[in-house]
């Protein structure tokens, strides 16, 4: 299976890009219009991929910043219908391949096939659903996703055993996302030791070509720099959301630019 993500990812690899960036955004927070401006700023600044989170009432893996953003968006009547419209606008209005992040209840209640059919139609590259851990049901889920030409990116953590990593590596599609600590989302001053020392174990268990992304806690250019050569993609979440809300889309662009230039240098 090859979609927009695969094409962009292998091109960046061929160019010799040391690390790629995935920028996270929460749909409807603070508003749809700010979402669109922010996506534009992210792309201009050199972000490679967009992770778009759909708000949910009970986001189990999210820390206070993203959780409160979820609640804020829902309070302002952000609906799934608006979410699909935003995804469509973002997919046609810019070039970063999009991964939709959502908790399982949204596609489950809407109807998984119907949900994924819509995402495929508007040209989304994949989905990240953090509350489907790897087990019997997730295998079926990955297969069903691939019928829609969508990657089902699996999430792992520093505590995942080598045995599980091996099994996950065999089934993974697109990229595997590892968390940089055993915890919930949230910007941190420093990256944890357990997060930065997990990659050897992961690489040993995974097929060579499988793309690896890492996130949770990245808040400075040095953090991304520290991940160079260790992972293919750095994911930045809470920090960008804080910047968007406190200082606006342009500040998000500036922050991403500062990371991009630190990678080049």
């Amino acid at each position: 299976m090859k979609n927009k993500f695969d094409i962009k990812f292998s091109a960046a690899k061929a160019e010799g890009k040391k690390i790629q960036l995935m920028a996270h955004m929460l749909a409807g927070y603070p508003s749809v219009s700010v979402n669109k401006e922010t996506a534009w700023a992210m792309e201009q600044a050199g972000a490679d991929y967009l992770e778009l989170q759909l708000p949910f009432s009970d986001p189990l893996a999210d820390g206070p910043v993203i959780m409160r953003g979820n609640h804020h968006a829902l309070k302002k009547n952000f609906s799934l219908e608006k979410g699909f419209r935003l995804i469509e606008d973002l997919a046609s209005g810019q070039n970063m391949p999009i991964f939709v992040m959502s908790y399982y209840n949204l596609p489950f209640v809407f109807g998984l096939e119907k949900f994924m059919g819509i995402l495929e139609q508007v040209g989304v590259s994949g989905v990240i659903i953090p509350d489907i851990p790897f087990d019997d049901e997730s295998e079926e889920y990955i297969q069903r996703m691939s019928a829609f030409k969508l990657h089902a990116a699996l999430v792992i953590s520093p505590g995942t055993s080598s045995k599980r990593l091996k099994a996950i590596g065999k089934k993974a599609s697109g990229f595997v996302y590892t968390t940089l600590r055993t915890g919930i989302t949230g910007a941190k001053q420093t990256l944890s030791h357990e997060g930065l020392t997990q990659f050897k174990k992961i690489r040993r268990a995974f097929p060579k070509k499988l793309a690896l992304a890492a996130g949770f806690g990245i808040s400075r250019p040095e953090h991304v720099k520290a991940l160079e050569g260790k992972v293919d993609i750095a994911v930045i979440g809470s920090k960008l959301i804080l910047l968007t809300v406190e200082r606006g889309p342009l500040a998000v662009g500036e922050f991403i630019s500062s990371i991009v230039s630190s990678i080049v240098s």
Binding site: L60, P130, D131, T160
Partner: peptide, 19 residues
């Protein structure tokens, strides 16, 4: 074996809770 009562139950949690 399946960690559920019929179709109900399961463990739909982030990977980091599995261990």
């Amino acid at each position: 074996k399946k960690r559920c009562f019929g179709e109900f139950g399961g463990r739909y949690v982030p990977e980091l809770l599995i261990q």
